[in-house]
């Protein structure tokens, strides 16, 4: 009974959502999973420009970045959205990790401070996005509590979710593990860096938005 009610509410929500012409698409995930690389891939594909800088050092994106009015097309289908690239959500930030990676103490402390603010902002934005793409590093364990918390929050808000298993170009990547961790969602394996399976990603996005 509860399940039927839940599905009904979700359907009503989806129907209302379908009537929206424009929506906000949030990219969420842990640090260094490739959110900005994917954002750059999307904006380069459809706007011909990059969205943000990427780095091997975690917490390169420390502020919410919004790129407005992206229109993507596939045959007769068309989607129009604002793309929101968010800082990676973490439960811990240690400036000493940046120092170990070669950054000065002063810069590391500044980066850590900005990163903490970035996480707070990313969580605040959870209420403002209409569709979420969870970007996970397919070489890492998907069962981290942060991933479960992000997805659980989307579930609680009835927000449509697409899970992206990124970095499939790497040998250690394991899409099946990501699929097993989140069986209730569509999971698409891509390499945002090299563009592998990016068309499947767009198709999956159309499917999730409905």
């Amino acid at each position: 009974m509860i399940d039927i009610l839940h599905k009904f509410v979700a359907k009503v929500f989806r129907d209302i959502f379908k009537k929206k012409k424009h929506f906000k698409l949030g990219l969420y995930g842990p640090p260094n999973s490739g959110k900005t690389t994917l954002a750059n891939r999307v904006t380069e594909d459809w706007l011909g420009e990059k969205m943000g800088s990427v780095s091997k050092m975690p917490h390169e994106t420390r502020e919410i970045v919004v790129k407005e009015q992206i229109n993507i097309k596939s045959g007769k289908k068309e989607l129009s959205f604002n793309l929101i690239d968010t800082p990676g959500i973490a439960t811990k930030i240690d400036y000493e990790d940046f120092v170990k990676a070669g950054m000065s103490v002063k810069k590391s402390k500044k980066r850590a401070k900005e990163a903490t603010k970035g996480v707070v902002d990313a969580i605040k934005w959870l209420d403002d996005v209409d569709v979420v793409v969870i970007v996970l590093d397919a070489t890492q364990d998907p069962y981290s509590q942060v991933n479960i918390t992000i997805i659980g929050n989307m579930q609680a808000r009835d927000t449509p979710v697409l899970v992206v298993a990124n970095k499939v170009d790497l040998k250690k990547a394991d899409i099946k593990k990501v699929q097993a961790a989140f069986p209730q969602y569509d999971v698409v394996g891509i390499s945002a860096k090299y563009g592998n399976n990016i068309d499947e990603f767009y198709e999956a996005l159309f499917a999730v938005v409905g």
Binding site: K109, V146, A156
Partner: peptide
């Protein structure tokens, strides 16, 4: 609750220090 966990992470970030 998952929403509470998100708030806990937020509060944790606000408390981070050296």
């Amino acid at each position: 609750k998952k929403t509470e966990e998100a708030e806990l992470i937020k509060a944790t970030m606000e408390n981070i220090s050296n």
